[in-house]
Design a protein around this nucleic acid. Structure first.
Lengths: 227, 227
DNA sequence: TGAGAAGCGGAAGTGAGATTCCGTTTCCGT
DNA sequence: ACGGAAACGGAATCTCACTTCCGCTTCTCA
């Protein structure tokens, strides 16, 4: 227990807030960035099981430094994840910038599995739920995907009976499957993406069961379904 | 170092062979089976991170017993995996028994993601390479899938420009993606499978890049590609 | 340039969980 | 039924990473 007399007034507010913007020393800022970059690489190579020590070595700092900047491995992973999410959002927005909705959709659909390939940790993490911390970025991503889907549908480039939730699920499947094959079979990866895209073309055979699901509905279902 | 005089002649041959068929006590046989069954359940529920102690409890034996039958957790996992593989092979063969090739293919394609859903460990493990120990069963599975694909193609039920390797990759993607969604969204899972199946229908738009790849070729590529 | 705070490295501390060990119990052939 | 080998249970041990700690170094600001 901290004696009351030693507590700084306003202590509560200066606890480890996410928004603790106090000025940092230049070397601290630099090291933090080095660690984050190294962690991204190491997680990409070895998955979430990668060791702190390896990250420290790669960043050229001591383990103590890694752990000071990111008190837990979990936290470090989340930080890396957040930056990866941002990068994916950027890809989605790049695609969205293309005037042709069909091309935009396809561009994103092709680029994502590629991204997964170089970020195994990202793929693994999608599997778990701890990524919840990345909420705001996640919402951005969902919005972008929805937009891509809607536009492509409006242009008749993809079938009308699917929803964003379908697309994101397909994407995660393709990404995962092709990441397993690794760089080994780039052609197989390419073919895989094409086949799934063909499944998304309009004018398919029988109607799908159920109906299109948006991310909003999906989230609601997740909240109410379990528990 | 073991003194030479204490070494049993023929020691080398009685080392932990895989083919050590010496008769076991009845309780040992029973317990081994109990452990294997419990492990399958526990791994299915908690993934490969499940704890030995939980498995022991579930099997109604002590941890010592688990570890005697399966000296390492890795080994236990592989044993479970092998039995799951067998079960998948059985599913493929069941499907193969159906006279209509189109139905056979679809039946298997639908049943596998379902199986993954209840065996998270299996799905996780597909991601790693340690499953190599299951080689013989694996070959059986590949043979069965190839057969399903070939027959379906001969019957014109699925497009001719794909190979078994494409199918298995798609399958693993669908399986993984839908396993993440869990039981939560069975409808989404169903739709996902249908969309991919639509992508496999004949008469698709543009031709796929590359050419169909068989498992044999895939394996060769894996052996020669890296290293 | 010098005092002091902030940050650093990496050795030691922890903790969770796999593996081993051994006294006790259970089978099995005679 | 009995002797002894085989198995058992589960506490003790070992292992391996994450996390903490602290003496030393590097910044920063006056």
């Amino acid at each position: 227990m901290v004696p009351v007399s030693s507590r700084i007034p306003g202590d509560g507010a200066r606890a480890p807030d996410p928004a603790d913007e106090r000025p940092r020393r230049a070397d601290a800022v630099r090291n933090r960035a080095l660690v984050l970059a190294a962690a991204a690489n190491v997680f990409a190579e070895h998955g979430t099981g990668a060791q702190i020590e390896e990250i420290a070595r790669r960043a050229g700092v001591g383990v103590g430094t890694v752990c000071r900047h990111f008190p837990t491995k979990q936290g470090l992973l989340q930080a890396v994840l957040a930056s990866l999410y941002e990068s994916v959002v950027r890809q989605a927005e790049d695609a969205l910038a293309h005037p042709d909705p069909a091309h935009a959709f396809e561009q994103f659909f092709v680029s994502l599995p590629d991204f997964y390939l170089r970020h195994r940790a990202f793929a693994e993490q999608m599997a778990n739920e701890l990524e919840l911390a990345a909420q705001p970025v996640r919402d951005q991503l969902m919005a972008a995907i929805s937009e891509l889907v809607n536009r492509a549908q409006a242009a008749g480039a993809i079938r009308a009976d699917i929803g964003p939730a379908d697309v994101s699920m397909l994407l995660s499947g393709v990404a995962h499957a092709t990441a397993l094959a690794g760089d080994l079979q780039p052609m197989l990866r390419e073919r895989n993406v094409r086949i799934v895209l063909d499944g998304l073309r309009p004018g398919s055979t029988e109607p799908l069961p159920g109906r299109p699901v948006s991310f909003t509905e999906l989230r609601d279902a997740k909240q109410h379904g379990p528990r």
